[in-house]
Amino acid sequence: MLIAQHIKLSRILINTWQVDLIMIVSCTITYFAREFLITHNLDIPAIIPSVLGTAIAFFIGFNNNQAYDRWWEARKIWGMLVNDSRSWARSLINYVDEHEDSKPLIKKMICRHIAFLYTLKGALRNYDDNIYSKYLTEEELHEIQQHSNMHNAILNIQSRDLQLLSKKGYIDGFRFMELNELLVNFSNQMGMSERIKNTIFPTTYTYLTKVFIWLFVVSITLVISSYVEYWSIFIGWLLGFVFVSTQINGMGLINPFENNSAAIPLNQITRTIEINLLEMLGESEIPEPVKPINDEYVL
């Protein structure tokens, strides 16, 4: 997630340089075609780029709105995960009756939740950092590795241990329901995250937007080349750059769980929850918070 108030022009150009080259080549070809092939045979009306520019503005506006909605929904889901994770640890620590058997089980269930968060993060980013393994026993690791959805398997283990706490009388029925509701919340938040990841944004919108931008660049170059001559190459590219950079900026939010500067900072969020839960357990070995990269963004 970007945290800098000002974005460097170099960062924008890194994301757009390939399209910029294509636009410059297109504008150059269009200019020479106008000068040597169609200058005396065809007069391009100025209304064409005007209409195309309006259509592009609508397409880009729609795409960017939908992209931000996906990004913001993902951020709200993980915000709820932060709150419910703290409630999970606090409830286990304070609601379960103190007993020699209950204390290690409470710690195991809280640490197992940290493993749940890391496995969920890994699934959403298609990257297994294996941090979760230090919070699970060998038996639990073996069990969840038999499942294609490891984070769901961890919730299943949590449910078994919650039932064990109830059978041994360490929690009453009301507290059991409260803790089980938190497990249901984790399952819902997991499902909502998976829905966003697995739902592909309609490719027709992005494809048509790119086509319209290319047509606009060509048509505006044709129209103004008779007035500013070779400067039409630069002006055509500049106007196209405005549309392209705006569109690419919006499309960067389409997949909010990817491991890039525009995505949700899952590393930071999971580390924050990990720190909070370990502090609540009174652990001495607490990991460092995730730090911003170049003071520009955090992953």
Rank of each mutant, 00 (worst) to 15 (best):
M1L: 10
Q5C: 07
I7V: 12
K8N: 11
R11W: 08
I14W: 00
T16G: 02
Q18A: 04
I22Y: 02
M23L: 13
S26I: 08
T28Q: 08
T28A: 14
T28P: 11
T30C: 13
I38S: 05
L52W: 03
L52R: 00
T54F: 15
A55G: 08
F62D: 04
F62I: 10
F62Y: 14
F62G: 04
N65F: 07
D69Y: 05
D69V: 05
R70M: 06
E73T: 07
W88V: 03
Y95E: 10
H99I: 06
E100H: 06
E100W: 01
K103G: 04
P104T: 06
L105G: 04
I106Y: 00
L117F: 01
L120Q: 07
G122N: 14
L124K: 02
L124I: 05
R125I: 05
Y127T: 10
D129N: 14
D129V: 14
S133A: 15
S133I: 13
K134P: 08
Y135Q: 07
E138F: 12
N149S: 13
N152W: 06
I154V: 13
L155Y: 02
Q158V: 06
L162N: 09
K168W: 04
Y170I: 02
E178F: 07
F186R: 00
G191W: 01
G191C: 00
R195S: 05
I196Q: 00
T206A: 11
K210F: 09
I213S: 01
I213E: 00
I220R: 00
I224P: 02
S225D: 05
S226Q: 10
Y227N: 06
I233M: 03
F234T: 14
L239P: 02
L253F: 07
F257M: 05
A263P: 10
Q268M: 12
T272L: 14
T272R: 12
I273K: 01
E274D: 11
L278H: 06
E285D: 15
P289R: 00
P292D: 13
V298A: 04
L299A: 03
